[in-house]
Design a protein around this nucleic acid. Structure first.
Lengths: 332, 332
DNA sequence: CTGTTAGCGCTTTCAG
DNA sequence: CTGAAAGCGCTAACAG
């Protein structure tokens, strides 16, 4: 638990100045070969590593990319995996940060995290499902599955509308007519597009829209509980539900099962995302796949390009319906 | 892309000194109520957030817990999720860091990351599957699934021996006699214990040990490819394989399938970990579950206690065999 | 080639 | 109650 050695310790041990150590370590010239070797030997001996913090403070660049999330949920985790893989053979390290918003804070977590880390700690940031994208930022940003009306900053997302329509059409093609929708986080663009896709599919099939069938899900298990119950409390309850993401779909199934319904016999459920948990759920979830690893890689590509002076880009990738066991024709 | 406001900007705008702003923000006394309110107003107006880096540099504490990993693979990701959840209602933020080891670096990634971040950025660290645990560290550490012979620092792990024995016994009870083993990362204690558990089960069943049936898997898909082929290249190939973790089990299945074998009809495979991907694999993987979320939570509890002056602890949790569809009696 | 100095943004004595 | 000044570890001028 003794303190880590600092550059000063190295300098003292090596019998040279701090500046010389710095130069030697960073390969700057102006250091004799002998001194250079000697310093490196002492560095190895002491097990010295420069402090990211101090370096960051002084120098602009840190060669660290930040992935800023509100919470480490499966969507963010899978994306992180993609980002990390894409950064494998670059000189960049990955730093993922989940900042808690102090209650009563009107700024979003993304703004706060970005401000705290973006000072100097990270060279660029990937924001995962940000509620708002700070217009002013000291580092380049790429937003993944961004908030409503993303325009300025670079973004990566899937074709949410198409995916949601495909999911709903799947239910309709199975014969469902009374289809509920567990809505997503309404501060995100994706939630709106998925709801629009749902409605478009209903319209195309000539199924009248029923406001009572649309309830809040909020993309999280906890926030989907009430909505799930509400749907099942309806006099004429839906025979199928399109949940705006997998976590709420799984919660929907849990609530249904708890109330004695069998999925898919009594209730079909479709999710969105295709997180690993979707396929491991019982029953396995029919869902709309987002290519999360690819999205992470694309975000990295854009960010690196921006770091290199490139322009922000807006990329939208296709979503694909994956049919598994949580859906079947209605039995009533 | 404009620079973030610094404390100096706030001070200038508010017409007070930097010191006063600092006191006001941190609730130190020695600031009049009026000044305090005024400063906070300016802070809000400018959207100021203190720089983690600068604060960290000056102050000891940052209220940030670091999760240090070599790579964001599923094991680390699930653990991270547990850590993050456990830290939910504490004042701590979570920072996950994947440091790349520069080639030719003899120090492990954990040593490097710890040294770079532990200077001041994080108050404590959770090391995920560290190859070595630095004896000297400036912050408290908890190692999860640690290297061989962990003794000093706090550790969290499962009963690897028991879990591995249960997995192997499961195969034996199905009637398998020729059982291969895809070994784990030999620098980790868990790999050795799992191999010991495998051998103990064979011994207990009176099955002679065959060195040719034990090959390297390294806990990663890429490093398990060669071993998987080696096992199937054997003249008298195994009818079942106990892979030291799920990633290598899934790779084993992939290699087998590619070579025209059906799993489990032609080859039974058991994994270890129960990452979400285990249940979503086709066929669903029989495996030994590690309670990853719990392990993360336990690591957090120990770390917080150490931060509070508590002693390092060594916790070992039970592992549980989960029977799914990748195992069945041998057909030949 | 080497060392001295200033300063990144912030907190903390210590004077006023 | 407020501000000036020092210093955390490091790097980048600039002198010697």
């Amino acid at each position: 638990m003794n303190a880590r050695p600092t550059i000063t310790d190295v300098a003292r041990t090596a019998g040279v100045s701090v500046a010389t150590v710095s130069k030697a370590i960073n390969g700057r010239d102006g250091v004799s070969a002998a001194t250079h070797a000697h310093v490196l030997r002492v560095v190895a001996e002491l097990g010295y590593e420069s402090s990211l913090v101090a370096t960051s403070m002084r120098r602009g660049r840190t060669n660290v990319i930040g992935v800023l999330v509100a919470e480490f949920e499966p969507f963010a985790l899978q994306l992180l995996r993609g980002v990390s893989t894409a950064l494998q053979d670059t000189p960049y390290d990955v730093l993922a940060y989940a900042g808690t918003v102090s209650s009563g804070d009107h700024l979003g977590w993304e703004r706060r995290s970005l401000s705290r880390l973006g000072g100097t700690l990270i060279d660029g940031a990937i924001l995962v499902t940000p509620t708002s994208t700070p217009a002013q930022s000291s580092v380049p940003i790429v937003a993944v599955d961004p908030h409503t009306g993303a325009d300025g900053p670079a973004t990566v997302a899937v074709h949410n509308f198409d995916g949601a329509r495909a999911a709903t059409e799947h239910l309709i093609s199975l014969g469902h007519r009374r289809i509920g929708h567990l809505r997503g986080r309404t501060d995100l663009e994706s939630a709106h597009q998925r709801e629009r896709g749902y409605r478009a599919a209903l319209d195309a099939a000539g199924i009248p829209f029923d406001q009572a069938l649309v309830v809040e899900g909020g993309y999280r298990a906890a926030s989907a509980t009430a909505g799930s119950h509400a749907l099942l409390d309806l006099d004429d309850r839906p025979t199928a539900v399109f949940a705006a993401n997998d976590l709420s779909a799984i919660e929907m199934i849990g609530v249904g099962t708890e109330r004695g319904l069998r999925v898919p016999q009594d209730l079909s459920v479709v999710g969105f995302d295709d997180i690993p948990e979707a396929a491991s759920n019982v029953p396995q979830l029919t869902t709309v796949r987002q290519p999360l690893a690819t999205m992470g890689a694309v975000a990295v590509r854009i960010l690196l390009s921006m770091l290199d002076g490139g322009e922000p880009e807006h990329i939208r990738l296709p979503a694909e319906l994956i049919t598994r066991s949580s859906t079947m024709p209605p039995t009533r």
